[in-house]
Design a protein around this nucleic acid. Structure first.
Lengths: 133, 133
DNA sequence: CAGTATCCTGACGGATACTG
DNA sequence: CAGTATCCGTCAGGATACTG
């Protein structure tokens, strides 16, 4: 059972990165997180997601819809009412992402510390090299 | 305990996306997957990762090193020998990513089917619209 | 309200040449 | 071997204007 998982490599990466490309773009993750809570309308999402443009919200939602992660329901009324909701598939993805969220919450300090140390080290080496000049 | 996890939202997303940005780029995931198996040298990685340029492998490794996910060891010999290995932190990240890999392997057919259906639907709608003129 | 359509910019990353 | 330096094309995504 572990075998297959340990075997993920170059080939598996191709598919995994397709998924990563989808959820790692600037807005998808936010949309999935919000829709996991409740159905939302286009403008609701726009208000909730600070900084997203009309265009990019549309593009993001279309991609998620195309991949079967989000459902789009048009209510034939005037003015139009379009509701977005997470599909069961989308919900399972949200579950899978959680482990990454947990990891991040657990280790963000480690990363921050590592960056700080690295930048410091580089700086020190620059300094030393200048002394050698 | 679940509360904190269910609460991940706009704020959590900021940090999570930083991590996603790191692992979702074109090469990082591949590097992490390879180094999880064993320590490797620069040229080994380059050979193993089909299509990566010298520049991008360097950039990728530097970022991973800066974030404390990869260790870089320079052996002072001629010709130079530089070995890369996953840090304990990097190893835990690899673990966290696995759930996403598993999800992808489980659901890639669903996604492929969803895309196919979506493209079909769009095509059909275009056709219908043309009929309407 | 919920989108298209169009234009434009900057960063990501590839190709190439050079180096300790 | 393991990089750095430089140039350059591409394209994701922002700003803006228009529409059923």
């Amino acid at each position: 059972m572990d075998d297959e998982i340990l075997q993920w490599d170059t080939r598996a990466d191709c598919e995994v990165r397709q998924i990563l490309d989808r959820i790692a773009d600037k807005w998808s993750l936010l949309v999935i997180a919000l829709l996991e809570r409740r159905t939302m309308r286009f403008t609701e999402l726009r208000r909730e997601i600070d900084g997203v443009s009309q265009r990019m919200l549309t593009v993001t939602l279309r991609q998620l819809e195309r991949d079967g992660l989000v459902d789009r329901t048009v209510h034939p009324v005037v003015p139009p009412r379009v509701e977005y909701t997470l599909t069961p598939l989308g919900a399972t993805l949200h579950e899978a992402i959680k482990s990454l969220v947990v990891w991040t919450e657990t280790h963000q300090n480690d990363i921050a510390a590592a960056r700080y140390a690295y930048d410091d080290k580089v700086e020190a080496e620059r300094e030393a090299a200048r002394g050698q000049g």
